[in-house]
Amino acid sequence: MQRSVSIKDVANLAEVAVGTVSNVLNNPDRVSNRTKEKVLRAIDELGFVRNDAARQLRAGHSRTIGVVVLDVGNPFFTAIARAAEDAAEAHGSAVLLGDSGQDSARESHYIDLFQEQAVQGLLISPVGNILDRIDNLRERGIPTVLVDRRADESRYSSVSVDDDAGGYLAARHLLDLGRRRLAFVGGPLHLAQVAERLAGARRAIDNTPGATLEVLDSGAQSVLAGRRIGDSLAARDKAGIPDGIFCANDLLALGVMQSITMMNGLAIPDDVALIGYDDIDFAASAVVPLSSIRQPTEAIGRSAIQLLMADLGNPGHKHQAITFTPELVIRRSTAGPAAPAEQHTEAPALSN
């Protein structure tokens, strides 16, 4: 069996010291362009592949960043992961992605796995309260940034969106259309993001005389869960069907839309005005283009990596809690055919 090419082989072919090859690989700014070109030609000719495991043992960590999301099947989280991957690549790091599936045991498994892999740091959208685990990781030299969840910046860094404001914006839009029998579709209700969107919707209802809000726990945030809710609503007498529905994400809204329009003959927005959350790509191309609350996925992923990189190897690092403002995107599912195809409105600032 042919032995693997070593760094010494590269040095011999390039007629340089082993330390020079190491600098080309790890500190290229210390090497002249002429010498660097010689070493890179030797690497290409020999087919040299660096032994990153050995480098990791010396450094105490890898060049990878662990990312744990709630649902990799949700385009919102895949967009954040992609933005984080692009930002990490610019820093010479790579991303390892884990899907907790909103399961705390599976989430814990990924945290353990990434700790065993000695990742540089961790980005996580937590299922529940994992602050003790984060403290434990930091003690072992693995900083963590919470994503899509606000944290106490005296202890951790986080990147999130003001979901209470987003929930208010969605419900307020339905109320401004004259809808008064609203339903909120989301679940599990204990999930922080869902609970905050519901709280914002309730604030809007409380400020509107004669308005009501029915809460329908979907148990999950998938298209199938939305279809189940849609079927249950369509089975009611017409007087019992809400005239406005706010779904905690776009996948649920698309499922509700499929059920009540394609299988049960209700019209959107004539019978029911429908709004989702996240503004995934599929929202604009739905059978009835879906109004939604837009979250800046690219900025979330990029900012999370920036916060993590600022924390690496910096014991005196000052944590930050970055909170983005959501934006209302109006399409046919609430506006009707006579309204503009798409309008954008930012959430109002909240008073304390």
Rank of each mutant, 00 (worst) to 15 (best):
V39L: 01
K318S: 15
H319D: 09
E37L: 07
A349R: 14
F246M: 06
R155S: 11
V119L: 07
P242S: 13
L96P: 01
P28E: 12
M1F: 10
V223P: 02
S93D: 06
E107D: 10
A349M: 14
I130K: 00
R172D: 05
N26H: 13
S218M: 03
I65Y: 01
R82I: 10
A79L: 06
N74C: 13
Q2G: 10
E107M: 08
H190Q: 10
F246W: 04
L146F: 07
N129Q: 15
I330S: 04
P326Q: 08
T20Q: 01
D103R: 08
Q117W: 11
T64M: 11
H190K: 10
L251M: 15
R331A: 03
M309T: 07
N74M: 13
H109L: 12
S158N: 09
A42M: 03
F184L: 05
S291M: 05
I7L: 08
G166T: 05
V21G: 01
E139Q: 14
A341M: 13
N74L: 11
R63M: 11
L137A: 06
L224F: 12
A195N: 06
Y156S: 02
A151N: 02
A59S: 13
D237Y: 11
I293L: 12
G301P: 02
K8F: 11
R34E: 15
V147K: 01
I322K: 05
G336K: 07
S351M: 13
D164M: 02
R106D: 04
P337L: 11
S100W: 03
A83E: 02
E45N: 06
F76Q: 00
S93A: 15
D162I: 04
P315N: 09
P242M: 11
S160K: 01
A339G: 14
V39S: 00
T208A: 15
R228H: 13
D86Q: 13
G60C: 08
S104I: 15
V49I: 09
A335D: 07
L312I: 15
V215W: 01
E298K: 12
T323I: 15
N264P: 09
V145M: 06
R155D: 09
L175D: 08
R155F: 13
V69F: 06
R34G: 11
N314P: 04
V95R: 01
Q117R: 14
D176T: 10
P326V: 09
V16L: 09
S100Q: 07
H319G: 09
S93Y: 04
S259E: 04
E196F: 05
R63V: 09
E89G: 14
F324G: 02
S160I: 03
R236S: 10
R236W: 09
A11K: 02
S108D: 15
P337V: 13
T345R: 11
F184S: 00
T35L: 03
A195P: 04
A94M: 14
E327Q: 14
T208M: 14
